[in-house]
Design a protein around this nucleic acid. Structure first.
Lengths: 225, 225
DNA sequence: TTTTCCAATCTTGTATGGTAGATGGGTTCT
DNA sequence: AGAACCCATCTACCATACAAGATTGGAAAA
């Protein structure tokens, strides 16, 4: 998922290269909320003209990561707690609907999810939080695929980036053991075809993020509006 | 909601003016799916340089209305039936969650929704389908506001545009009387605090769009992938 | 006639210069 | 000293020129 800037063949156009590099810097908090950047600044940093940088700014602004203040400056958007909550409302709405569909028609779900959970336990034992993060995301994406709405999952990727920034701040904090237990509960209910139980388990799983958000706001108040 | 191109004070920058004009042309099918446009073409048409037009293209491409084929051309994206179905999956997921929240805690909901329905009946009697469309959208937006997630509603506006194109094709077709009846059922269940009933009524309301979509694909096969 | 190939002419991508609005700091006036 | 003001300097915005890939049509060869 990470894009290396110096990699000169992966991306087609310079503009997309800059988009990938900046997005990575923003999500990983290398560029912190509130940081001021400018077209010429970034252009010089990556050795390109202002034009592709400008287009990158436009794309990232539309994804809610940058705020372009005309004739003034462009800043890395601070995280809006309300925006995070509503992004999570969207995510919860969709994930609940997904888990219902999957639980209604299990099928290969139980086996597939079981494998993923096993990998997660391996990553957790190895204390590889980066890999666990990837596997966690894959768990939810797999549910979407099982429900036949993987494309819909891609559609909300933009909104998910807001959540990813918060998540990055809580990388070490989030106890993966707890998450794995919740994943097991979800998989078990799905395997049993227990729709209501699966929905409840999913809601409980997502609700834990609320606590993390409030804690993160306390830890990094200057990153939020 | 419509933006007049010749209006020279409403929009701030030329790029945003072009965005609004093109989006309006696309949603209203003035620019049809599959139509090929070019930066210089549009630039000449609006009397600006290629630069702001190019930026407009980028924005609209990110919203899924245009498809930029590098060094080749830019075309009005054809409507993807699968994309429409998944966009509607997203919408249904969110609207169901919204209607649950509102039905759980009615309050002023019944009165507010009642007023909107009355206006819809007036528009329907006057055969003003354009106004009915606006009121219909307002009905759903109001539900989002009542649930305290109006911002979330704005977040999915981009995806809704895909649905709006289909909807425009069925403007005269969709019998507003049926829609009003469904709105009444929703409002009644909400007013009674009947969560399950409100959810069922909302699902029934949204399900009707599936029929319209299939009919529209038959009527305009060249507009779809 | 059919096929191959090349060149004119499209397209979008990139670079650069100039414009107007906004900011900040120093100067001048009161 | 305090406040108003002006100007150097920043910003994003727009216009223009050039570059490079893709397409198309016709000419030339088989």
């Amino acid at each position: 998922m990470a894009v290396n800037v110096s990699d000169s063949v992966t991306e087609e156009t310079m503009a997309l290269r800059v988009v990938g590099a900046l997005r990575d810097d923003i999500v990983t908090m290398t560029l912190k909320p509130g940081d001021v950047i400018s077209e010429s600044d970034i252009a010089g940093r990556y050795g390109v003209s202002r034009q592709p940088v400008r287009e990158a700014f436009i794309r990232l602004a539309q994804q809610g990561l940058l705020l372009i203040r005309p004739k003034r400056a462009t800043v890395v958007k601070k995280i809006s707690p309300e925006g995070v909550r509503q992004s999570r409302f969207i995510r919860e709405s969709i994930e609940v609907e997904i888990i219902r569909r999957v639980a209604s028609h299990p099928g290969e779900a139980k086996a597939v999810l079981g494998e993923l959970i096993a990998e997660q336990e391996a990553a957790s034992s190895a204390d590889d939080s980066r890999r666990f993060h990837t596997l966690d995301e894959l768990f939810h994406r797999t549910l979407a695929r099982l429900a036949g709405v993987e494309y819909a999952w891609q559609l909300i990727d933009d909104h998910k980036m807001q959540l990813d920034r918060v998540r990055y701040l809580t990388l070490g904090v989030s106890s993966s053991q707890v998450a794995i237990g919740e994943h097991k509960a979800i998989a078990a209910a799905v395997g049993a075809g227990d729709v209501a139980g699966a929905e409840a388990a999913m809601r409980a799983h997502l609700a834990r993020a609320e606590v993390l958000l409030n804690q993160t706001i306390s830890d990094h108040p200057d990153y939020f509006e």
